[in-house]
C-alpha cells in the first residue's frame, strides 16, 4: 500500500516538474537542441535543478540498507558500455530531436497534447513493444567476451 502511495506522489512531483519547467513544450526542447538556431537554455536549468535533489538522494542511499518501504535499494551503477546503449541512445536522440518529445513529457502532456500526442504515444509504445526482439539481436551480434 505505502509503495503505491509513494509511486503516486513521486509521479505527481515528476509530472508537476515537467509541466512547470516547460519540458512538455516541444519547441523549448528542440530550441535547446538547436545550437545553430535560436538557442534556448531552459533545458540545462531543468537538468541541473533535477540533479541537485537526486544527487543528495544517492548520498543518502549510500548510508541505508533498504528503502523506506523495506524494498532493496538499486545496486551500484553498471559501467558496461555495450552496443545496445550506443545504438539505442542514437535512435532515441534522433526521435527526441525530430518531435521534441521524450517518454516523461509524453505522459505529462496527455491531458492537453491533442491528437498528435496520442499518435506519438502509440508509435512510442509500439517501439517499446518490439525493442526486446531487437535487443536480443544486438546481443547476438556481439560475440561473448
Amino acid at each position: 500500500m505505502l509503495r503505491h502511495i509513494i509511486a503516486l506522489i513521486a509521479g505527481g512531483l515528476f509530472g508537476s516538474g515537467l509541466f512547470l519547467s516547460g519540458m512538455t513544450n516541444t519547441a523549448k526542447v528542440q530550441g535547446w537542441l538547436d545550437v545553430f538556431g535560436d538557442w534556448d537554455p531552459t533545458l540545462a536549468f531543468v537538468m541541473g535543478g533535477a540533479m541537485i535533489p537526486m544527487a543528495l538522494a544517492w548520498l543518502v542511499r549510500n548510508r541505508r540498507v533498504t528503502a523506506l518501504t523495506g524494498a532493496p535499494l538499486p545496486p551500484p551503477a553498471s559501467s558496461e558500455i555495450d552496443r545496445k546503449l550506443v545504438v539505442g541512445s542514437v535512435l532515441f536522440g534522433m526521435g527526441w530531436g525530430l518531435a521534441g518529445l521524450c517518454p516523461g513529457p509524453t505522459i505529462a502532456a496527455l491531458s492537453y497534447g491533442g491528437p498528435g500526442l496520442y499518435v506519438f504515444l502509440a508509435a512510442m509504445l509500439t517501439g517499446m513493444l518490439v525493442a526486446p526482439s531487437l535487443r536480443a539481436r544486438l546481443d547476438r551480434a556481439v560475440p561473448a567476451e
Binding site: G11, G49, L68
Partner: peptide, 16 residues
Amino acid sequence: GGLLIGTGGAVYLLGN
C-alpha cells in the same frame, strides 16, 4: 520544475 523532477526521483529512490 527541475527541482520538482529531482525531488520526485529522490522520493521514488528512497521510498521504493
